[in-house]
Design a binder for these strands. Structure first.
Lengths: 221, 221
DNA sequence: ATTCTTGATATAATCGATTTTTAATAATAG
DNA sequence: CTATTATTAAAAATCGATTATATCAAGAAT
């Protein structure tokens, strides 16, 4: 999950916008990314568009095959499972490191993040799905806060990319998984406060796998 | 570790060459990557160079900051430890999946890869350091073969990138760690044949951490 | 002597044009 | 009618020029 800050070059702005639009579904899996269309849509020249697309290629959101242009990366059920597996692996590891190092500031941070998320979840549960993107930002905020004390910038960066790949699948469903998901978030918060890593990891695994099954039940990938 | 195959666009060729030169040290950490110099050195126009550099930015081999151009990513002792930690995490996980799924073909593959590597290690041990790059390619070949049956393309791709980041540090030392490293490779091969994942993971951890300490002993990062 | 301001130079970022390649369509042969 | 080849149009990749920004050096002010 990228948070935009400060002044950006045109190229960076195009990169962030394209990335956002792929993750949140405005650009669909396997869509051909025609340079002339993108030029108009993102208000930059073709060469600048290509720079942004090249960044997205190594990140895995765009695929290219010499001379045939760029395509939004495809999606599939098996890939979702692989990404979820990686997310579990990285996030469980980061949780352990974070629980070991986390201090009072970190506790306050995750309480605040959870508060925002649970407010959003209440709204989703009451039937208001109008701010789906905000909901997912708070979801990210909570998970990121949980692992923020892990002490490894490389791990956090990598986790962020994997999280976004997982999020792309999540954004395809129109529904909230319900009280089960909210309960899992609450459990994660409580185990964090208690520094109970074994139970936290177990809940996280259930949580992510629940999201996978929910996605796969909604569409045939 | 990227293996070059088939026809490439100029842009792809520049990307591979730059990537190679960063990993193998021809372009030093924190070097300013001046576009006019690269234009001559890599025989492509500035815009094409920029495309390749953008790919390397999201991959972490190059850093950029708004109007100031591109730099080879810096190195540091803490970062090496983080990368090693990630390599251990990913490779141990992939080993487990591979041991569960590996068949006779996979066994033959790792035996062949180990043979090549041990031949190279014999040469290093006899004092011949002339083919350091080949040695590292065989090292990669062996580790990659060990995890090749893990069944996750995402995991293999990710592991490959992390391996290359780790390799960049390894290439800075001029020396072979010695019989200890060779023995660890042999142990990995034997545990793979026996599908002994616990011992294999333990040896792998020792192996990678040995490489980290060897690197840190050689230079003050 | 130090700091700030201004202008010149170097360089990065972006642009649009040109070249190269691919894809689509039409013509021809079997 | 189908398959192959040739032609044309569309699009991708690369190029070099232009615009925008950073850096550096010199002069002025304190």
């Amino acid at each position: 999950m990228h948070i935009v800050s400060g002044e950006m070059t045109v190229g960076e702005g195009v990169y962030e916008a394209l990335r956002h639009d792929i993750i949140f579904g405005q650009l669909s899996p396997s869509d051909k990314l025609k340079l002339d269309n993108l030029k108009s849509a993102y208000n930059a020249s073709v060469a600048t568009i290509r720079e942004a697309l090249n960044r997205l290629v190594t990140e895995g959101f765009v695929v290219t095959e010499g001379q045939r242009g760029f395509f939004v990366a495809p999606i599939s059920g098996p890939e979702l499972r692989e990404i979820a597996d990686l997310r579990i692996l990285l996030e469980c590891h980061a949780l352990r490191l974070s629980f070991e190092a986390g201090d009072t500031e970190w506790e306050a941070e995750i309480i605040a993040a959870h508060h925002k998320l649970s407010r959003m979840e209440q709204r989703m549960q009451s039937g208001d799905h109008s701010e789906k993107e905000t909901w997912k930002r708070y979801d990210w905020g909570f998970h990121q806060a949980l692992i923020s004390a892990c002490g490894s910038r490389e791990l956090l960066t990598l986790h962020g990319t994997i999280f976004d790949k997982y999020l792309r699948y999540q954004m395809r469903t129109l529904t909230f998984r319900g009280e089960a998901a909210a309960a899992e978030h609450r459990a994660l918060l409580n185990y964090a406060m208690e520094r109970d890593i074994e139970n936290a990891q177990a809940v996280l695994r259930v949580h992510i796998e629940g999201g996978v099954e929910h996605s796969l039940a909604q569409e045939n990938l």
